[in-house]
Design a protein around this nucleic acid. Structure first.
Lengths: 303, 303
DNA sequence: TACCAGTGATGCCCAGGGAGTATCAATATC
DNA sequence: GATATTGATACTCCCTGGGCATCACTGGTA
């Protein structure tokens, strides 16, 4: 059975025709195309038949474009020159020299290891455009599965099937307090010392596992947690602490760059633990640009 | 000898790949393309080899685009949809339904038959864009030979090889005088009556033959011509007459739409004769849009 | 656990058609 | 009018796209 899906023409016809239209001379065009003149004549005739229009007026001494031929040249010229660049472009993407990476992250990632990772990555892959979006752990996992992002920096609760991860940070939390908090002078606190202090947390839906482990830490300390606000993104939570609304949990690593009027204090006794990983869809092979970013991240991996 | 000029791929590869990329399923894509699945697999493999990049990750249960494949889809999608429209567009141009006509004309043409011709033509061929430029006879002939215009309305001196013409107007000239000219009250003049009146002519280079026939008319009348100005385009010449600078020659047909303060008078005795033709490159066949314009012009042909 | 359904890839063959060579008809040029 | 050069045509060869049959692999299921 012959094929049903017929193309009116092939790229070959267009390239051949362009050459004839440029030179207005079959023999010279054929030479430039490194084919014999009769083959060229036939291909042009085919193209004319396919389009149902005469493209060239040829007397045996002169070849000239018809209006239809001129219209065709005008339309295909930009396409052909664009198509010439396609193979190189595609290969560049395949080799990771250019492209884009869609990266999601949490506030903690940006406050700790992410800037260094991105700096190192961008030095090695200047052609890769990074699309960075802060988003909660649960959304990152959904986006990874849906193929909407290439990797995410988030706080895992349980292993996710189909997602590979590398652990970057694992730290016992301390707390951030307003600088005028009554307990600001104490170097180390216990959770039960903060029984009367309202806490600013993230919405539970953003990471139910971690949220519940925080509540577990309160329970272990024998304290009923006072949740003042559930706020997102993270920077707003720190802003509320700064405004004196309450306290929040934070990693020691995060404490290096705190705004004014916010202080970090270690927690003795029960405390939640933060884990930061970079995660990506399990795939063989990992695209080169992503592989490079993951490698840069692995250089900051937790011991 | 095998061909030297190798295309990295053909349109077929791109259309096939687009279908697979849309459906992410070889069998369904093959069905949509009305080919068998193995043929499709091979064409995709060829495309990947040609580009030197893997475009699809296929496990035996799932097909997904690699970044390179996504980049390729992005680039070819607009081209393919544009290419789909090309055959219809080219055919429309070939049939004269759309396109453009580059038309040159002289002031006399625009002052007489051209507006009617264009009006009639545009009614029949609304898709044709007319590019109209006033230009002198000699320039029109050069532009016709160079293929820079499709037809011209001009004043021929001798037949031009390679240019076909249709005579549209053939009239003995009269003169345009300023309304305050001493001879304004005479209904009919002779050239020798105007021996003292300066004349406004066009530059000789714009039509040497006609220019010399004008001088011949002066000679036949036994008058030495007073050339006040050589000016172009024609409308400026009429403007100078209106300003009282001098007189100029004009056709009776032209006299129907004169500005204020300019009057037309017939000439008895020796007088130049104006011939207006429409001319186009001899070609078989004449493009349909041009043919339609020529037909509209022929309807106004001189008897 | 073994089977089954369904995936894309591979092997093999046929034929359509693209390209080659030889040649023709037509037309400028001398 | 002889000659050279143009694009078109006739004929042949063989490359390659497409067909069918089948394989290897995977995931769900009885």
């Amino acid at each position: 059975m012959p094929r049903e899906y017929q193309y009116p023409f092939e790229l070959r016809h267009l390239v051949y025709f362009r050459e004839v239209a440029r030179r207005l001379h079959f023999r010279k065009a054929a030479e430039a195309l490194a084919i014999a003149q009769p083959a060229l004549s036939r291909q042009i005739a085919q193209l004319e038949a396919a389009l149902g229009a005469r493209l060239l007026n040829r007397s045996s001494r002169r070849v000239e474009l018809t209006p239809a031929g001129a219209a065709l040249v005008e339309r295909i010229e930009p396409m052909l020159s664009a198509l010439m660049r396609v193979p190189a472009d595609v290969r560049a993407v395949a080799e990771g020299r250019v492209g884009r990476l869609r990266v999601a992250f949490t506030g903690l990632a940006m406050a700790t290891v992410l800037p260094d990772i991105l700096r190192g990555f961008h030095r090695g892959f200047p052609g890769i455009r990074l699309e960075l979006n802060e988003s909660p752990t649960t959304q990152q996992l959904a986006a990874l599965h849906a193929g909407e992002i290439d990797c995410g920096f988030f706080h895992p609760d349980a292993p996710s099937p189909g997602i590979d991860t590398t652990l970057l940070l694992r730290e016992r939390n301390g707390v951030l307090l307003p600088a005028d908090h009554p307990l600001r002078s104490r170097d180390s606190l216990r959770l039960r010392d903060l029984a009367a202090t309202p806490f600013v947390l993230f919405p539970r839906t953003h990471n139910p596992g971690f949220y519940d482990r925080i509540l577990g830490a309160f329970a272990a300390a024998g304290v009923a947690p006072q949740i003042a606000e559930e706020v997102w993104p993270r920077s707003n939570g720190v802003g509320l602490v700064r405004a004196g609304i309450g306290a929040t949990f934070a990693c020691p690593s995060e404490a290096r760059h705190l705004p004014e009027k916010v202080v970090f204090r270690r927690l003795a006794g029960p405390a939640p633990e933060s884990r930061l990983v970079v995660g990506w869809r399990s795939a063989q092979p990992v695209p080169p640009a992503l592989a490079a970013l993951l490698e840069a991240a692995a250089a900051h991996a937790a011991p």
